[in-house]
Design a binder for these strands. Structure first.
Length: 586
RNA sequence: GGCCCCGUAGCUCAGUAGGAUAGAGCAUCAGAUUCCUAAUCUGAGGGUCGGUGGUUCGAAUCCACCCGGGGUCACCA
């Protein structure tokens, strides 16, 4: 599917020929040989750095080696031109027919164009969102949610076996606060005047229905109940209710996790103890006293002995505490057990998506995964930087107190799922992002969401017009018929350029999946849309380049094939981003 | 003070398993509409890739040290 693989084979065949002829050593390391499209299209269609990379081990000057390789490539008969340029690049040109007929591949694959075998079904676990279930999701969670989901889509397109996972932090102190807050709402539901919500509890209205439901289910029975038993009931009901809220929020963004993993269940299973026992057996746990942080010592610092994990053995800066001073586990201890559990479920590639404020935990988590899997699993922590909400260029100030708090739902309802998703992916994950409500809904080139969707809609507009055109009455313009059209009609530079551009898509998928960087797809789609819009306008200047030519059926069918294929590539890319490819904009 | 991220055109940003003359959008200037959606397109100007060294055929990309911005720093998840 990735046509550059095809050319890689041709190049490696040529190199193998030189090896068997004795010109090149048989044990040459070919891993650095790249076969890529050159940056400048005037250099040709394909380029390789083989001569420069191999010149030293071959003991030859790059240009001399390039001449040899280039002769072999020329003899392969695949190219209309092979030339050596610059310091030793070998540039190859393929005949137009090659490119034209590749359109049939796209038309056959449709929106599955770009699917790569790269992942070979390897299991990848992507953990994202994992927001504490203490309320609805706020806008700060949005970027990580969209990023993780798009990354999962991307890896699926690259043939990884992906699990989307959510870690429910339902065991910590914040959950106790949630339960207390819900209990207050329960008393309120029973008719008690609870006054204003005390400091330290969650004041949000979203707990009112939780209180009512508890009252409906239990009457006033909870009031007389033993505190531990009551707390269990209230906590469990509250967490369930909050997770329902969160699932609803995620659903509005088009996100569905396959696994929701409960931290509380982890505590109850005894898995934490067994995991740490394993580490203890490897002498990776000890009781010791940490040095206070250099430069800035907290006021309440005490040099007390703690149960520590030897994360410094795995590259961390200091060893990390596993138990709090009250004897409970720190968040880190269950997290270690959780990651072991992922590994034991067969996931050797682990990805977690965190907010920027958790950047300090990356090394310890990687250390833990290395220790617990004995190097069998790799962990990639993707850090999403903050999003600055803007309105007409002015930052929106948020605070929970003043009620100017923006939820994820607010954003989705104002600008729509597609716009939110695309904009969140239109920046590298580790760079801060401005999100301007005005810009995101604007219908102009300023707004990449619109620009890409508009290209797709234009394509469908042409297809609708073609279907309704008298000159094409009774003519089959289905995908199979278009694939069989005389594609050699596509001779204009802009047409060939568009074809070559869309054929890069499988390469983009592989590169983006390899790097765990879905934003590359967003940028690619913007550029592909740009190629299409340019061709469209060329037809305005030169009517001979219009897509529908009533008196030239062959050329029309070829051009419909071209734009139909473009539409599939755009749709395939949008599928990765989780954005709808709309067919009409009015 | 330690660690992590960032620093590329006036602005917002792409571009890293090292590749040829560093790219887009916005903004500025000059153009294109009897025609499939001008919601678009074409062209121009604009750069010591934060700095200095190093590695090599070749560095925005890798290494070291600085400068500037942000995040984080036992027991909060």
């Amino acid at each position: 599917m990735n046509i550059f693989r095809h050319f890689e084979e041709i190049v490696s065949d040529a190199l193998a020929g030189l090896q068997s002829a004795g010109t090149l050593a048989a044990d040459l390391d070919l891993s650095r040989v790249a076969v890529e499209p050159p940056r400048d299209p005037s250099h040709g269609d394909i380029s390789t750095n083989a001569a420069m990379v191999l010149s030293k081990p071959a003991g030859m000057k790059p240009r001399d080696l390039a001449d040899l390789i280039s002769t072999a490539l020329d003899a392969s008969g695949h190219f209309t031109d092979v030339s050596v340029a610059g310091p030793g690049f070998i540039n190859m040109t393929v005949r137009d027919t090659f490119w034209q007929t590749r359109l049939a591949d796209v038309l056959a694959a449709r929106t599955s164009y770009g699917v790569s075998e790269m992942g070979t079904g390897q299991k990848v676990n992507v953990e994202y969102v994992s927001a504490n279930p203490t309320g609805p999701m706020h806008v700060g969670h949005t970027r990580g949610a969209v990023f993780g989901d798009a990354l999962a889509n991307l890896l699926e397109k690259a043939s990884f076996d992906v699990c989307r996972e959510y870690y429910i932090n339902d065991a910590g102190g914040q959950i106790a606060v949630l339960a207390d807050s819900a209990f207050l709402r329960y008393r309120e539901a029973l008719g008690e005047d609870i006054g204003s919500i005390p400091e330290g509890l969650y004041p949000g209205d979203y707990l009112v229905p939780v209180g009512r439901a508890l009252a409906a289910d239990h009457g006033d029975a909870l009031l007389a109940m033993d505190e531990t038993a009551r707390h269990d009931i209230v906590r469990s009901a509250s967490v369930d209710a909050m997770m329902d809220l969160i699932r609803g929020d995620l659903d509005a963004l088009g996100i569905k996790h396959e696994v929701f993993f409960s931290e509380r269940a982890l505590h109850q299973s005894g898995k934490i103890e067994t995991t740490l026992k394993q580490l203890e057996n490897k002498d990776l746990i000890y009781v010791g006293v940490l040095e206070p942080p250099k430069g800035k010592t907290p006021d309440d610092w005490e040099a007390t002995p703690q149960t520590l994990f030897r994360s410094t053995n795995f590259g961390d800066d200091v060893d990390r505490a596993l138990k709090k001073s009250d004897g409970n586990w720190t968040y880190f201890a269950p997290d270690i057990a959780y990651h072991l559990d992922k590994y034991e479920r067969g996931y050797t590639h682990l990805i977690v998506v965190w907010g920027a404020d958790h950047g300090g935990s990356v090394k310890r988590m990687k250390s833990a995964v290395a220790a617990v899997s004995e190097g069998g699993a790799d962990l990639d922590v993707k850090i999403c930087q903050l999003v600055r909400l803007m309105r007409d260029g002015e930052p929106i100030k948020m605070s929970k107190r003043s009620g100017t708090f923006v939820t994820l739902r607010d954003v989705v309802e104002e600008v729509g799922k597609d716009a939110v998703r695309f904009m969140m992916l239109n920046r590298k994950n580790d760079a801060p992002l401005d999100f301007d409500f005005a810009k995101v809904t604007e219908q102009s080139k300023d707004n990449p969401v619109f620009y890409v969707q508009y290209a797709h809609a234009r394509i469908h507009s042409v297809l609708r017009n073609a279907a309704a055109d008298d000159a094409l009455k009774g003519v089959d313009i289905g995908d199979t018929a278009l694939a069989a059209a005389d594609l050699s009609c596509l001779r204009d530079e802009a047409e060939l350029g568009l074809i070559k551009h869309m054929l890069q898509f499988p390469r983009m998928i592989e590169a983006a999946a390899e790097a765990h960087e879905p934003h590359r797809i967003a940028f690619y789609l913007f550029e592909l849309a740009s190629s299409f819009h340019a061709l469209w306008n060329k037809g305005k200047d030169n009517p001979a380049l219009r897509f529908i030519l009533p008196d030239q059926r062959d050329a029309t069918l070829a051009r419909l094939a071209l734009i139909r294929a473009t539409g599939y590539v755009i749709a395939s890319g949008l599928e990765v981003l989780g954005v709808e490819p709309i067919e009409e904009m009015r």
